[in-house]
Amino acid sequence: MTENLIIQEDNLVWNKPSTLLDVPMHYCPGCGHSTVHRILMEVVEELGIADRTIGVAPVGCSVFAYHYLNVDMQQAAHGRACAVATGIKRVHPDKIVFTYQGDGDLAAIGTAETIHAANRGENITVIFINNGIYGMTSGQMAPTSLAGMQTTTSPFGRDVQTMGYPMKISEMLAMLPGVSFVTRQAVHKPALVRKAKKSIRQALEYNIKGMGFSLVEIVSNCPSNLKMTPIESNIFVENKMIPFYELGDIKVPSEVL
């Protein structure tokens, strides 16, 4: 029976990070949220900052993040995560503060809070999941929904004339001097997951060094609301979303270049 020989403690090459609580996640099968939760907590574990990290998860599918992430967390009202994070950071300047927001939260109802936290160069890291749809409320149009995209509130396809254009909020935020690092990644392939994890690590390292506002956008899927299988939804991300939301670093701190 050779398997037992292999499944030994010192042969371990990959396991779940200890910073994830042992609670099954409620996300739909194949949803990118779960993957990003994991790589975020892998980075928090590797940087050894779980004891002094405080996260903010506003309304959206990821509002339950505090059930899964073993760091002090606050649930925020829809759109207010960056304000809540500002409040935390200002009274705990020595702590590492991040928000974990969806596209509706960050680029619709929370636009003002996001832009002004960025403009103040608030020393927080924003993990921004862009799946181009409102997941928790089951499928409405988001500010990042693609032109022509069908959702429950754009049943005949998003008409940009009357419903506005898909918003590249990361590029907008990158213009602000207070913003040190902006990158756009994805998690629908192992290589991309590795790259996304590296970017999150980069962002948190800038955070630790106090280099101002850092943003990691993750272009992700929403199988249930796109009415696709997980694999089809990732093909949608690859073929439809990524051509518009190009991956890569949008802004990197000047000293590092």
Binding site: I54, A77, R80, A83, A85, G87, I88, V91
Partner: peptide
């Protein structure tokens, strides 16, 4: 909401 965050963080 800044009040919420800071109060929730014990301040």
């Amino acid at each position: 909401n800044m009040i919420y965050g800071a109060a929730g963080a014990g301040a």
